[in-house]
Design a protein around this nucleic acid. Structure first.
Lengths: 296, 296
DNA sequence: GACGAATCGTCACAACCCGTTCACATCCTC
DNA sequence: GAGGATGTGAACGGGTTGTGACGATTCGTC
């Protein structure tokens, strides 16, 4: 329906070489991935937004009708776009509920017709941004990003503690990955990488895509950075969680995140030995009797 | 660097004595007052806004013409409202400059006539909100508050009733931190800093956020104050509680508070000694195998 | 108002970290 | 087996952080 007013406009926005990750900018790189839900009934709008999100690699959920807040909570969202119009009378209560139960969530209201008083009430209540309905998807995305950017620090919090895959728990607010009581400290890049991979669990991501999303700009030909970081991650994860393999290589394509117990094929007399073992690692140390056996 | 080309410029902003973060208030409701500057040439708009801010008790500075970014930095602002129209050609560069040099500052653009492309560009660049010119002061204020709220929201929950982390006890009412019964004799800034960090135990806080919340205004790029105070704190804590490490550095990101026994790597023979049991602080002792957390 | 102590912020330099790149070994596919 | 892709270890270098010292400012006291 509405192509960006000027095709050029966003292309140059997109590609802007990103101010060289200024020192101060901290977490610099863009969200590896954003989990966003849209509650709206305008199918055209939803369609355009959907495509936009997809292009950004955001995980999205489109909801043509209101869902219980419980369900929203369960979705572990990073952002929510909502048109209170379809919420009817209960709109304010609903918003209030969302605000209270999902601290840190980026909430953007997008609706036709609204008075100053309503906007003020909404913003005061905890809505992060409020815009009029015929709104450009590009601008909506930019506003969501602005909100996330600002709240990035605060948002991860305990509620959306982390991404849990298999026995691995990744906590963004701590820059650490946990397995039982062991932890691996990750550097900024390592964390961004594992966050991206784990967020796309089971899916093969190509190097170019990984690079683009983690580094924020296009990968140069022959650049091996991704490989190197994958190796670093593997080392740390292996150390923290022996007996498990998390990152799989797909020759000629890229990498795929999927926790799987390592199978010993070497000695035929060895029964399939899931994680439990990990004895050989030498430094037994604190017996972390991990019950991971369950697997397989 | 932040000294001032123009002595007078920030006079009225500077002076107000900063409601003395009442002792009790710890960091609970930090900086109820906001230091805000408005760069605009619409006298009517300025007047209305001025009255509004005044009523809120915000310290304000009205600038009818653009001032050097240096001066803005010197004003130690929490929020900035600006109409790029009066910046002329240099508008984008000016904004870029502001964004880069004052991380954490809440920037709201308020201008007549702007295209989607411009808004997107601005928001991507770091502007927090962008609204059209005939704008209601009440809404503007609500939006500024929304932006600030977002940057702060983190853990308003710790109210100050003496926070105990590991073996460290922080008593807000006394403005002191204790280990066992020895006081660490902290200065005000030091106390505010440790209070903030400990209140967010386990989480990595970025420098900008720390600065914003402890100092109360945006951090200037390149400011090392946080590092210096972290060092002072480490010295005092180390002295009061040898063998323990409280503040961890996350390269390129910020700091994380988490009490941990210091590890003696020399001897491979270790005993686990989590923060609970505290041995005599005298000895090097606590040879803990920390394996966990140790950078795996 | 002058003096002194304490606190705060800045600076310069040293130490270190981490992202990058390289060289080489190993693996995969054809 | 050839040739390219990926794994692995090490080294480099720029940028970040640690550290000590020095002014600036504030505050209390005389």
């Amino acid at each position: 329906m509405q192509a960006p007013t000027s095709g050029r406009s966003h292309s140059d926005v997109e590609r802007s070489p990103r101010p060289a990750a200024v020192a101060g900018d901290g977490l610099g790189a863009p969200h590896a991935t954003v989990r966003v839900a849209v509650i709206d009934d305008d199918s055209g709008f939803l369609h355009v937004l959907g495509k936009r999100f997809e292009r950004l690699g955001w995980q999205q959920r489109v909801l043509a009708s209101p869902v219980p807040v419980d369900d929203l909570v369960a979705m572990r969202l990073g952002a929510l776009v909502v048109d209170p119009a379809i919420l009817g009378r209960a709109a304010w209560d609903y918003l209030q509920d969302v605000v209270e139960r999902m601290p840190g969530l980026a909430i953007v209201v997008c609706t036709a017709r609204s008075s100053v008083a309503q906007r003020v009430r909404g913003l005061r209540m905890g809505v992060d941004d409020w815009l009029g309905k015929p709104c450009h998807p590009e601008e909506l995305v930019a506003r969501i990003e602005a909100v996330l950017r600002r709240g990035r620090r605060a948002d991860e919090r305990h509620d959306r503690p982390a991404l849990v895959s298999g026995e691995l728990e990744i906590r963004g607010d701590q820059f650490q990955a946990f397995v039982e009581d062991r932890s691996a400290e990750l550097t900024k890049r390592e964390f961004e990488l594992i966050d991206l991979l784990a967020g796309a669990e089971g899916r093969v991501l190509e190097r170019e895509e990984i690079y683009q999303r983690v580094w924020g700009y296009a990968m140069a030909r022959g650049d091996r950075s991704v490989d190197v970081f994958v190796r670093k991650l593997r080392q740390k994860l292996e150390k923290a969680s022996p007996g498990w393999k998390y990152i799989h290589t797909h020759f000629g394509v890229g990498y795929r995140f999927a926790p799987e117990p390592v199978v010993e094929v070497a000695e035929p007399n060895r029964v399939i030995a899931p994680p439990t073992e990990r004895a050989e690692r030498g430094e037994a140390t604190v017996a972390v009797d991990d019950e991971a056996t369950a697997r397989v």
